[in-house]
Simulated scan of single mutants.
Amino acid sequence: MPGLQHSVVIAAPPARVWELIVDVEHWPERIPTVDSVERLDDGPLALGSRTKLSQPKLSPAVWTVTELTDGRSYTWESKTSAVTVVASHDVEPHPDGCRLTLALTVSGALAGIGWLMSKSLTKRYVEAEAASIKAAAESSGGATRNGGG
């Protein structure tokens, strides 16, 4: 199964980073690779929660939370007829604050060719997401959009 993983150490408490990664409604303000987010359910992110995410150069996708350990990790997936993308967000304590690990796998009939076409872009997006969450968590306000990546 094609995929990638990226980790970053963040000089902030795990609770602060968790707060940022589950606050998906504010991702467009913080993460330059997210144009818009529409929550399709009320309340905090939970098992079964659905979110429509629009990103530059990608078709809008609906992501459904399939696993969630509050304060620690969540996994969500987006499915089309030929491809399933699974993305995980994991926060763990680290001597310097915490470690955020973002991982993504692709499966399905067109996963191989799709991955060949999108691997470079996906890698840049995952790295930009991690860098943006790091910048937001380490800043006092945490709501400014970071142009890096």
Rank of each mutant, 00 (worst) to 15 (best):
S7I: 05
V8I: 10
V8A: 06
P13F: 06
A15H: 03
A15Y: 04
A15P: 02
V17L: 13
W18C: 05
L20F: 04
V24S: 07
E29C: 09
E29M: 13
I31H: 02
I31A: 04
S36Y: 09
S36L: 10
E38S: 13
E38F: 06
R39P: 02
L40W: 10
L40M: 13
D41I: 06
D41S: 10
D42V: 06
L45Q: 03
A46W: 00
A46V: 00
L47A: 07
G48T: 00
R50N: 12
T51I: 15
K52M: 13
K52A: 14
K52T: 10
L53E: 00
S54N: 11
S54E: 13
P56Q: 06
K57M: 08
L58D: 06
P60A: 08
A61Y: 09
W63I: 06
V65C: 02
V65W: 00
T66R: 06
T66Q: 05
E67F: 01
D70K: 09
D70I: 02
D70F: 00
G71E: 08
R72W: 01
R72V: 13
S73D: 06
S78F: 00
S78P: 05
S78C: 01
K79W: 01
T80I: 04
T80P: 01
S81G: 13
T84K: 05
V86K: 13
A87K: 14
A87I: 11
A87T: 14
S88P: 01
H89W: 02
V91I: 13
P93C: 00
P93G: 03
P95M: 01
R99A: 14
T101C: 11
L104N: 09
L104I: 12
S107W: 07
A109L: 15
A109W: 11
A109R: 15
I113G: 11
W115S: 02
M117T: 13
S120W: 06
S120C: 04
L121D: 09
A128E: 04
E129W: 04
E129T: 14
A130E: 10
S132C: 00
S132F: 01
I133G: 11
I133D: 09
I133W: 08
A135R: 14
E138G: 03
S139K: 04
S140D: 10
